[in-house]
Write a protein that binds this DNA or RNA. Structure first.
Length: 820
RNA sequence: GCCGAAGUGGCGGAAUGGCAGACGCGGCAGUCUCAAAAACUGUUGGGGGGUAACCUCCGUGUCGGUUCGAGUCCGACCUUCGGCACCA
């Protein structure tokens, strides 16, 4: 009697053995081709939940598969350790962010080991350690030197009661502060930006990288490139030096239809252009706009409102006076922060003027239009009217004609506008990499010299429930000497966005112990770029976008010599529980620990892969995991239960059975290989289940020789090894095979042996299934009528007395008769 | 609201424009057992008909279209999910 499959014991046994043997330690000089398999490193929130497993286990399966295919695989792990939750813990529970973070990391390392992945822990990266963030600061200096970092004003969420900056996450959907329920407003602060917009055009291009189409679309939309014309409207206002207002439009053909001008409420000219009688109303409107989020402001659902500020500008094309309004649907951050209002030909402008009775002037005539009032904005093409010398031109041509005219007169310029804004990296917080800059009254803004890096976070900062960044009140930190003149200076107290840390962590994995540089050049050249990057699609436009920018900037600075960080990208879906996303507040977080203890890591790994397509994600369901557990137990029995061939079988029976088994085996190798390559883990496991079911039948009948049986078991174990590394290692050992199964080559299939001999041909009449016949694969269309007469009696009954108009034959699949 | 996805049995899901429901869960029936659990075997989309082998109609969110043929392609709509620049 064989002993039971005991996963707890096996998990421990093999994890210890692999670690002792350094089985998965990665070497930099290995003749085999390299494969850099990266998975997004986790934030150390404290507990590894099933969602982490869902991101990590299937990636590990793919990495193990590449390893068996003969690649030198780098599959590293680390922690994205700076961020808001650590600081919240400090404020709420009085625990230092460093302590909180490192304790969490300690715990998560232990939990991560339970996965049984091939992580080489000697390469671990932790972004909050000085040996890491020193280089985050260094990269900031490099970007600064390259002219890619600059200071500018940007609004932050501000709670007037807490006197603190809030993350969007900390603002409730009602617009109130999550801590004290005060209405959050927006406040402008001087902050650091990276010139990501400089790379906007290059980042539209995804040639040479294999990324999901939907992520490419999202990034292109995020960049939002649009070609148009910047048009100057004349401004003549006493005491205002600006003599023009520029607006960006993609529809210069509608310029004669301008009946108002709209500024973003935050526009700097609003203060000086507002007439005294409008001031109170305008100020109130600005105050209200400051309380709205951008999403609310841009919602087409929201009623368009605004305020006339009492001033005018002039449309140079027709010399008309145009009233200037402010409205919150215009954003300062896009274009010039001002737009021309053309109600007749823009939906938003149309809704706006309906409310305020501003005139609507049609300048693009819809087909069959005879001067009647429009029911809604006409945004299509048409013929120009009311447009002076451009009347009668088709709108498409007039875009060019009017742009040419404006350029000749110097009243405008063709230009490209982007929705993309520069990357704001300043955070008014403690727990992040310090921005290595000093402010000196004499020398201005001075970078900290490289030799003085890292600028360390002071350990004794105070975390008060209110107030701004603890760094701001830490005198020893703030007060310093100017690196240039040696006089008194003040340190920058903002820290960097954590997306900065995650924009280069994958470079550090290639040589994590390098002290005198962020990485070793040779090792970087050896491993980069990342061959496969996996992680959640929620990073589509932020982390994944910033990392691309970062690499392009480093390339231009001369630090790296490639254009893109990640060659292939794959996004897994998310795991939900009880129909909802897992979250602490909902109390539906599934922890893997108990399942791992009871059923083993292999079962949890396999179940996560089996429950849904990886790309899609799905619901964790307690009752379904038993199916996987049972299956792995059956594999245990199948392999260890012994095999006895049927002594009474004739040689020809055996030969036939072996040919059949060989075909299934090679078909299975093909299916499993192709499925893993495409991350179709759920169907891969179906294929393996079918194969083990098939082997169970073979075992029952004893229809093949012992040698063939053993050959099949060999294949089964290898195909299952990446998914169930512990179980297969044990079975491999128990059946007398050489350690380790994880150093075995991946099986290859033979197309000839995988080929079916017979197929089922479907017979349809008028597209409806009427019969199926079994035919040899070699069948030709000429042989069909004969075969149909003999075998497809059901279908031929439907053809009785009917005239066949057409027949469609799809070799290997079906024949369809179109009758009558 | 804008951008991006997804909707198939009781459930998770499978299906290069060509047999809808592979594989698994659950259910039902059986074997084993004093009994139960576990395990194993069989069966299982819905309606109608037949003693039975089986026959037949319906069926992939809704409505329309393309096609010899649509879960798959196109259009409109409905619902759910991800992102929207300070959660990472």
């Amino acid at each position: 009697m064989i002993d039971r499959y005991n996963p707890q014991e096996l998990d421990r046994k093999w994890q210890q053995r692999w670690e002792k043997d350094k089985l998965y330690q990665v070497s930099d000089d290995d003749p085999r081709p390299k494969w850099y398999a990266l998975t997004m490193y986790p934030y150390p929130s404290g507990d590894l939940h099933i969602g982490h497993w869902y991101a990590l286990a299937p990636s590990d399966v793919h990495a193990r598969f590449k390893r068996m295919q003969g690649y030198n695989v780098l599959h590293p792990m680390g922690f994205d350790a700076f961020g808001l939750p650590a600081e919240n813990a400090a404020i709420q529970r009085g625990i230092h962010p460093f302590t909180w973070t490192m304790q969490n990391i300690e715990n998560m390392r232990r939990q991560l080991r339970n996965i049984g992945a091939i992580y080489d822990w000697s390469r671990e990266v932790v972004t909050c350690l000085p040996e890491y963030y020193k280089w985050t600061e260094w990269f900031f200096l490099k970007l600064y030197e390259a002219g890619l970092a600059y200071r500018g004003k940007a609004p932050v969420n501000w709670c007037p009661k807490c006197q603190t900056v809030l993350a969007n996450e900390q603002v409730l959907s009602s617009g109130l502060c999550e801590r004290c329920n005060t209405t959050v407003t927006r406040r402008d602060l001087e902050q650091w930006f990276f010139r990501i917009t400089k790379y906007a055009d290059e980042m539209m291009n995804f040639d040479g990288i294999d990324w999901p189409e939907r992520i490419q679309i999202m990034q292109r939309n995020w960049i939002g490139r649009s070609e148009g014309t910047e048009i100057s409207f004349a401004l003549d206002h006493p005491g205002v030096p600006e003599k023009e207002i520029r607006v960006f439009t993609t529809r210069p053909d509608t310029t004669f239809g301008v009946t108002f001008m709209v500024f973003a409420p935050e526009h700097p000219l609003v203060a000086v252009l507002t007439s005294p009688d409008k001031k109170a109303e305008v100020d109130a409107y600005i105050e209200r706009a400051r309380r709205l989020s951008e999403i609310e402001r841009l919602s087409t659902e929201k009623e368009k409102d605004g305020v006339f500020i009492g001033s005018y500008c002039t449309n140079r094309l027709n010399g008309e006076k145009v009233p200037i309004w402010i409205a919150d649907y215009v954003l300062l951050s896009y274009g010039t922060g001002a737009v021309m209002g053309v109600p007749a030909h823009d939906e938003r402008d149309f809704l706006f003027v309906k409310k305020y009775g501003i005139p609507i002037r049609v300048v693009i005539a819809p087909p069959d239009w005879h001067g009647e009032e429009l029911e809604e904005a006409y945004i299509e093409e048409g013929t120009l009217v009311n447009s002076g010398q451009f009347d009668g031109l088709p709108s498409k041509q007039s875009i060019e004609a009017i742009s040419d005219f404006l350029e000749e007169k110097n009243w405008g310029k063709r230009t490209v506008s982007y929705r993309l804004r520069d990357w704001l990296i300043s955070r008014q917080r403690y727990w992040g990499a310090p921005i290595p800059m000093v402010y000196c009254d004499k020398c201005g803004i001075v970078p900290v010299p490289e030799a003085d890096l890292p600028v360390l976070l002071p350990e004794d900062a105070e975390f008060r429930p209110t107030g701004e960044s603890p760094l701001k009140y830490h005198e020893q930190f703030v007060n310093t000497t100017c690196p240039r003149c040696g006089g008194p200076g003040k340190r920058e107290t903002d820290t960097m966005d954590t997306f900065m840390c995650s924009s280069w962590y994958f470079l550090r994995y290639t040589s994590p112990d390098t002290n005198d540089a962020p990485f070793d050049d040779d090792k970087l050249k050896f491993w980069m770029p990342v061959d496969l990057y996996t992680g959640g699609a929620e990073h589509a436009v932020m982390h994944l976008f910033y990392s691309r920018f970062f690499i392009k900037a480093l390339r231009d600075i001369g630090i790296v010599d490639f254009d893109e960080p990640f060659i292939r990208l794959f996004n897994q879906g998310i795991i939900i529980a009880e129909k909802q996303k897992m979250s602490k507040s909902l109390g539906n977080v599934v922890t893997p620990d108990e399942y791992v203890t009871e059923l083993g890591a292999d079962t949890v790994r396999a179940y996560l892969m089996f429950l849904a397509p990886w790309e899609q994600g799905g619901e964790w369901n307690d009752s379904s995991i038993s199916g996987i557990s049972r299956w792995l137990n059956r594999i245990w029995q199948l392999v260890l239960g012994g095999y006895r061939p049927d002594g009474k079988a004739t040689p020809s029976d055996t030969e036939k059975a072996e040919r059949e088994l060989s075909r299934v085996t090679h078909q299975t190798i093909r299916r499993v290989t192709q499925d893993v390559e495409k991350f179709r883990f759920n169907v891969m496991l179906s294929a393996l289940m079918e194969y083990s079911n098939c082997l169970a039948k073979v075992k029952e009948t004893g229809s093949v020789s012992t040698q063939t049986w053993e050959g099949s078991i060999d294949i089964l174990l290898r195909l299952l090894a990446p998914t169930a590394p512990h179980l297969t290692e044990e079975l491999w050992e128990r059946t007398g095979r050489r350690y380790s199964i994880h150093n075995q080559p991946w099986p290859q299939w033979d197309e000839t042996l995988a080929k079916d001999e017979e197929i089922t041909l479907v017979v349809q009449v008028n597209g409806k299934l009427r019969d199926r016949i079994t035919v040899p694969v070699s069948i030709t269309e000429d042989e069909l009528p004969q075969l149909l007469q003999e075998k497809a009696t059901k279908a031929t009954a439907y053809l009785e007395g009917k005239k066949i108009l057409k027949q469609i034959y799809v070799p290997g699949r079906l024949i369809n008769f179109v009758v009558q």
